[in-house]
Amino acid sequence: MDLFLQQTVNAFALGGTYALLALGLAVVFSIMGLINFAHGELMTIAGYVLMYCGLAGLPFLLSVPLAISASMVAAVLMERIAFRPVRNSSGATMLVTSFAVAMILQVLFQNLISTRSQPVLLPQLLSDSVTIGGLVIGVNKIAAIVSTLVMLVVLDRFMKHQKTGIAMRAAAEDFGVARLMGIRANTVIAGAFALSGLLAGVAAVLWVSQRASVDPLMGFMPVLKAFIAAILGGLGSLRGAVAGGFLLGFIEIYLAAFLPHEFQEFREPIGLGIVVLVLLFRPNGLIPSAALKAIKV
């Protein structure tokens, strides 16, 4: 039972990180139909900023907002430079563009920083653990869960109560009609990228906090997982992305913990098998996007 609770905490921590990443993908996808595979490189950028801040001796509490801001700025620049010119192209063109952006950034990291994994200085506190009700829980896990919850609440409030947030929901449902209301396409899209950068930055801090290192390809795996989570949840649906992220985190952690030894080798394919099974029963994902049903002008 203890082991189960312990793993449940781990699942919430990992699932929360996937949820934040999937949410970042979903925010952009819901508005411009782009699956941004370079989302992972936003994470990597935030990771490197954390590393350099550590080397420069900055306190962690200052490094974190710097890292997150860097990933937000990078996201907005990415939109301005790479995605705006292809905004009205097909989904395939935008997807290929995002792969190109991801690869260019990876090559830049490899050449300008290092091809190898670099250590990141973290405060001692993060590797401590506390005992709650007989459970030994790492501070980094608690921080991950708390940060995820805070982010989800903040984002929910933003989308429900801020005029810009409501405009983003409107644009996600029907971009043309939203523009007709005077909602500027550039504002909404830049806003979506800034939000996705914020989410990627927070996810990067959580990710690096569990591993204490950063490498040029750091963002690839988590974003691939987040992409799977976003599809599992229902592509373009924000609630779906969160649900999919958590579900994927649970599947991975429970399989790693409870799958018999002889099957551990097949953990990833079994996990993906479960995802496919869910999609067989719910082809549009756990919480399908409303825009799927919308008719276009």
Binding site: I166, A170, E173, V177, L180, R184, A290
Partner: peptide, 24 residues
């Protein structure tokens, strides 16, 4: 002019098929 500039200028359209934002 792009669509977002016309409502501020004083012209707008209620499109065929209504197109209300159903999730708002």
């Amino acid at each position: 002019w792009p669509p977002e500039t016309l409502a501020p200028a004083g012209m707008t359209l209620s499109p065929e098929g209504r197109h209300v934002f159903g999730t708002l």
